[in-house]
Design a protein around this nucleic acid. Structure first.
Lengths: 392, 392
DNA sequence: CGATTTAGTCCACTTAATGGATTTAATATG
DNA sequence: CATATTAAATCCATTAAGTGGACTAAATCG
């Protein structure tokens, strides 16, 4: 429920509103902020002073536009102090990044590890090491890490990974394992919150991608996940398990899927099915063959694209997304699957929908999830700066 | 974006919080309200005084529970003054209801009209007449109609019905037609807002139904629509067109659908397909035959249930609903389709989902949409009572 | 160079919530 | 039966935070 507004939470909230507006509108003067937020110049001035003191915003060079009157001094988000750590565990790599308040990527680390053969604890201590290095380096650059988020390839419920089949994890309580030395691993503090990779990839696309505020982001990895963003907010469903595009039924009598069903999208457009159909071992090999015009590879993409188109048709009817963004392995394959996907969706949607959602490719590819993880921390800070202020 | 909180909006908001808590918790004392909202007793007392003066709450008989100390005087929502009008246009009937603040249905009117043969303007003036009668009767009972919402069987965008195929409407600007005598019809004032029938039916189920806060409501009418409620809020998608369950792809190579696709759910479980397959003319006839054990009727239900189960499997993977509630024509058919639907969803979901959503039947049946329409007005009033207060 | 215009700050005022003291109305107890 | 105890509701002085108008600062215009 919406909570009651008390005097202090009013201020906290308004600080968030002002900071959010600063982010949205780039460098802005206090006067413009007052106009936009509906607060008075006095109030805005006081709040900007607080934000300046906290190192969250900085006065930029005056954008003197040659207009009459006293020129305002614009303020913008400052990347100099506050930063966030993004972490990712995936099937065959670990990854970390540090992002500052302006969403500039300050540091990027990745490490190839086969996490299928390693135990969860091994993988997590590996990750902690990587995180530690990243944090140290960020500190050396004068940044304060305000928080971190970890992306894992499977559904997460409050720090608990119930079942991540592609990692071979079952009931791994990541949150607890990372909650610090007494019983846990030496994780960076404050200890990371854990979230699903597909969800965070969608948020990555939101904050670091093409700038859409309404889209369905499809992350093709070993599994096929999707994250829906509506009005700049992620849709999670009742238990946070929404967006399992990979198990949407495409051909009800198709091949059996590890989910217990038959004919799920993953059996046609998942990375393994796709490579098997094309007779390739890696995605790089597949794109190579596609470039060479290999018939089997092209047929595999055609088939995967058609299946993806069918699943997306259902998803569009249910979700009503603004745009569809293809990411993960679908990004490098985009030139070849775009056609079949479009053909299928257009044929089935154009008669009833005024606008068939655009089909776009993600520029972020595999980086979307780590970036989204770090971005989520930043987003939380901007929405509620008081909680992260160095106590007044 | 979240708007800035100013002094007056702080009060407005807190009034809404208090009133919302009164609704949620039935008769409560001021002291309990203070506890629940986190506001002080002083503040709550002042606000309750305002709400009493506005006739929105009333002091109920003290629920003296034999405890020590001064007993509190409980307050509860009062149905005596404020009420809302719900309206519905459907293919073969018009309907109206008046609901008071406590969500008690004070008045219920329905009229069988074939709106397929009538023009939109004819239908709407018919509706206005019905509404006028309902409003007059409510006034006579001392109620003030604070607003109204109209349900129509088709997607609505800001008062404009782009395409309601089952009514034969195209680009009917209902909002404008109902905006009052200068150019419009003599609609009740304030003039109704318009929304989609499936959405409002889901909200009806939320407020008047079984009390779930997370569910997917399936309204089987001529078309098959669905409304998703998550955390007590309706999910609408980017353009308000979400939940078109009827056009989820079930058998990609199935029969052609009027949407331009093939093998949509509507071709198997829509009212027309279902009756045709069973060789029946009306739903009543069909249920009669089912009760008699007619083989063709049972087979038709089996087939429809299987198709619905497939579509719901996809919907569960994408939406992650808490429960599935079957309404509309599926309500009377529930005893016969429950089995096939369950069998299909359980087989395809149980291995990967910790909890397969429950399958329940709506107690509201065809009334869900009108009730939801009236309920939406009430909901708005409770969320922001200041806007509906008789000016302090 | 003064008039005009706009930005930002200062200050007295208002709103609404707070917290503790007080009053009120019950039950429990000697 | 009078008194203690307990909890609800109200009263009142205080505080936090936003408001609005006056004032100062720094530009451009004529």
């Amino acid at each position: 429920m919406t909570q009651a507004v008390r005097h202090d939470s009013m201020r906290a909230r308004n600080l968030g509103v002002v900071l959010g507006e600063v982010r949205r509108s780039g460098p802005v003067t206090r006067a413009a902020l007052a106009e936009m937020t509906g607060l008075t110049k006095t109030t805005v001035s006081k709040m900007v002073a607080d934000l300046l003191a906290a190192g969250m915003v900085a006065e930029t060079g005056v954008p003197s536009r040659g207009e009459r009157g006293r020129p305002g001094t614009a303020v913008a988000l400052s990347g100099g102090r506050v930063a966030a750590l993004g972490l990712e565990i995936n099937v065959d790599y670990l990854s970390a990044c540090v992002v500052d308040l302006t969403l500039a990527v300050r540091l990027r680390r990745a490490q190839a590890v086969d996490n299928r053969t390693a135990s969860p604890v091994e993988t997590l201590s590996h990750l902690c090491e990587l995180a530690r290095e990243a944090v140290d380096e960020a500190r050396a650059a004068g940044l304060v890490i305000a928080g971190s988020v970890l992306a894992v390839p499977g559904p997460v419920d409050d720090g608990l990974v119930h079942n991540a089949p592609n990692l071979g994890w079952r009931d791994v309580h990541v949150g607890e394992l990372l909650s610090g030395p007494p019983g846990g691993l030496p994780a960076p503090s404050p200890s990371p919150t854990v979230d699903n990779e597909a969800n965070l990839a969608a948020l990555g696309e939101l904050w670091f991608g093409s700038g859409h505020r309404d889209f369905l982001h499809v992350s093709g990895e070993i599994g096929v996940g999707a994250g829906l963003v509506v009005g700049g907010a992620l849709f999670r469903g009742a238990h946070g398990l929404a967006g399992e595009l990979g198990h949407v039924v495409v051909f009800p009598d198709g091949p059996a899927c590890r989910c217990g069903g038959r004919g799920c999208l993953e059996q046609y457009a998942g990375q393994e099915a796709l490579l098997r159909a094309a007779g390739a071992d890696t995605v790089e090999q597949l794109t190579g063959r596609l470039r060479d015009g290999d018939a089997a590879a092209l047929a595999a993409c055609e088939r995967a694209g058609h299946a993806l188109g069918l699943a997306l048709t259902s998803a569009v009817h249910l979700f009503d997304p603004g745009t569809i963004v293809l990411g993960g392995v679908f990004a490098p394959l985009f030139p070849w699957i775009r056609g079949p996907v479009r053909a299928t969706t257009a044929a089935r949607l154009s008669a009833i929908r005024a606008a068939v959602p655009d089909l776009a490719v993600s520029r972020l590819g595999g980086d979307a999830a780590v970036l989204g993880a770090a971005g989520q921390v930043i987003h939380r800070i901007v929405a509620d700066p008081v909680a992260h202020l160095p106590a007044r």
